[in-house]
């Protein structure tokens, strides 16, 4: 078995992985929470609010995550009391994810077939009750796959925090490569870390999707 020279960097990479994991967890949690909040606000706040959230979401989704990260980072005032880089990364990536989460929920709710709400009306449900008991549960099941997809995207996206100097997996990898010239081994190891996380999320998502499928 050939010796893997990059193994000596394993402790450093594991330390960087911890940052990536922490960043991912915060982004996914905040992104989901904010996305759900925006969906609820658009639903309850009337037409103008829905239109405004929709328009802002459209613009945010239209730009690259990296540009959004740069924008937030450079716009934040520098601070000595807390880690501005990490804050900028979490804020930018959470808002970016929320814009997609909002669109996924909006689309799923709009995609609930007319026949279902007709049937709910026909047994005497008010629109509000029909929304709570029929539209929402059906729409939520439709969102599992795209939400899992978006979660994987967000985790991969945390690699862009390296561009504003957050020391996580990608930045650690870049530093090592520029010192040691073992790009295939080092990047392979890093990619493997990302792969294991994303793959696990995708598998878990597929399991959830099977559980909530209408045939189950």
């Amino acid at each position: 078995m050939p010796e893997i020279a990059a193994l000596k960097y394993l402790p450093v990479l594991v330390a960087a992985l911890a940052t990536t994991a922490k960043l991912s967890a915060m982004v996914v949690a905040c992104g989901l929470a904010l996305g759900v909040t925006l969906t609820a606000a658009a639903h309850l706040g009337g037409k103008a609010v829905a239109l405004a959230i929709g328009a802002v979401g459209y613009v945010v989704r239209g730009m690259p995550l990296l540009v959004f990260v740069f924008g937030v980072y450079f716009a934040l005032p520098p601070s000595f009391t807390f880690d501005t880089k990490m804050l900028a990364a979490v804020v930018a990536m959470s808002v970016y994810m929320a814009a997609f989460v909002f669109e996924i929920f909006r689309g799923a709710i709009a995609g609930v077939p007319r026949g279902l709400t007709d049937a709910a009306s026909a047994i005497g449900m008010t629109p509000r009750l029909a929304f709570r008991r029929m539209v929402l549960p059906v729409a939520l099941r439709m969102t599992v796959a795209p939400i899992v997809n978006r979660t994987v995207m967000s985790i991969k996206g945390t690699s862009l925090a390296s561009a504003i100097g957050v020391w996580e997996l990608s930045l650690a990898g870049r530093e090592i490569i520029q010192r040691d010239l073992q790009p295939f081994q080092v990047l392979g190891m890093i990619a493997l870390f990302y792969f294991v996380i994303c793959w696990a999320v995708a598998l878990a998502g597929a399991a959830v999707e099977r559980r909530v499928s209408f045939e189950h």
Partner: peptide
């Protein structure tokens, strides 16, 4: 009003071409 419409529909049962059962 929506509440009133709902009350009226309770007295009328309806069956659709595409069944429209609640899938969940």
């Amino acid at each position: 009003r929506a509440v009133d419409l709902a009350r009226q529909r309770r007295r009328v049962g309806m069956v659709f071409q595409s069944y429209n059962l609640f899938p969940h």
